[in-house]
Computed example of a mutant assay.
Amino acid sequence: MVRYRPAVKIILRILECIARYQSKDRALKTHVIQCANLKTTSGEKYLKMLQEAGYIVEMKEKWGGRTVIALELTELGKERYNWFKRINSELFESDEWSD
């Protein structure tokens, strides 16, 4: 039986990845998708949803001879990240859905 992660767990993981990479230097879009363990199409869908909700912003930056896409949490995104952590701990106390 295939078990899928609930959307709240995926969103929390994406926000965690952005926060972690952002604190070190910058959160590149490809790194965030890999960190969240998502396929590119699913990752794009969730990132678009988070961007439209105002949780993240996307910036294009020059890196060497190419352009990369970096992601940052907005103030609302930081607030919601803490909110999702709390919801996650309340809903998923068992390790049934642990990553």
Score class of each variant (00 low, 15 high):
Thr30Val: 13
Pro6Trp: 03
Leu15Pro: 09
Val57Gln: 10
Leu47Lys: 06
Tyr55Lys: 06
Gly77His: 06
Leu47Trp: 08
Asn88Asp: 12
Cys17Val: 02
Pro6Ile: 13
Tyr46Phe: 13
Ile87Thr: 03
Asp25Met: 00
Ile18His: 06
Asp99Phe: 12
Asp95Pro: 00
Lys24Pro: 00
Trp83Gln: 05
Ile14Gly: 02
Phe84Leu: 08
Lys62Leu: 08
Ser98Ile: 09
Thr40Ile: 09
Asn37Tyr: 03
Asp99Arg: 07
Ser98Phe: 07
Glu96Leu: 11
Cys17Gln: 02
Lys62Pro: 02
Lys45Phe: 13
Ile56Gly: 02
Pro6Gln: 12
Lys48Val: 10
Glu16Ser: 05
Pro6Phe: 12
Leu73Ala: 10
Glu72Ala: 13
Gln34Glu: 14
Gly64Asp: 07
Asn88His: 12
Met59Trp: 11
Ala27Ile: 13
Thr30His: 09
Met59Phe: 14
Ser89Gly: 06
Leu28Ser: 08
Thr30Asn: 13
Tyr21Asp: 14
Glu79Tyr: 03
Glu44Trp: 02
Gly64Tyr: 07
Tyr81His: 14
Tyr21His: 15
Lys9Tyr: 02
Lys45His: 04
Asp25Asn: 08
Lys48Phe: 12
Arg5Lys: 15
Ile14Lys: 04
Lys60Ala: 14
Glu58Lys: 09
Thr40Gly: 00
Leu12Met: 03
Lys39Gly: 14
Gln34Lys: 14
Trp63Glu: 15
Glu44Phe: 00
Ile87Pro: 06
Val32Trp: 04
Ile87Trp: 12
Ile87Phe: 10
Tyr21Glu: 15
Lys9His: 07
Leu91Phe: 14
Met59Ala: 11
Ile33Leu: 03
Asn82Pro: 00
Leu50Pro: 01
Met59Asp: 10
Ile11Arg: 15
Arg5Val: 04
Trp83His: 10
Glu90Arg: 08
Gly54Trp: 09
Thr74Ile: 06
Cys35Ile: 01
Trp83Pro: 01
Ala27Val: 09
Pro6Thr: 06
Leu50Lys: 03
Ala7Tyr: 01
Leu12Val: 08
Thr74Glu: 11
Thr41Arg: 04
Leu28Val: 11
Phe84Ala: 05
Ser98Met: 10
Thr41Phe: 00
Asn82Ala: 04
Ile69Lys: 11
Ile33Val: 13
Cys17Thr: 11
Leu12Ala: 01
Lys85Ala: 06
Gly54Asp: 08
Trp97Thr: 02
Tyr4Thr: 05
Ile33Lys: 06
Lys48Gly: 03
Ala19Arg: 09
Asp25Tyr: 05
Val8Trp: 00
Ile69Asp: 04
Lys62Arg: 14
Glu96Val: 14
Glu61Cys: 02
Lys60Pro: 02
Met1Ala: 11
Gly64Thr: 01
Phe92Gln: 00
Arg5Gln: 15
Lys60Phe: 09
Cys17Gly: 14
Ala70His: 01
Phe92Pro: 05
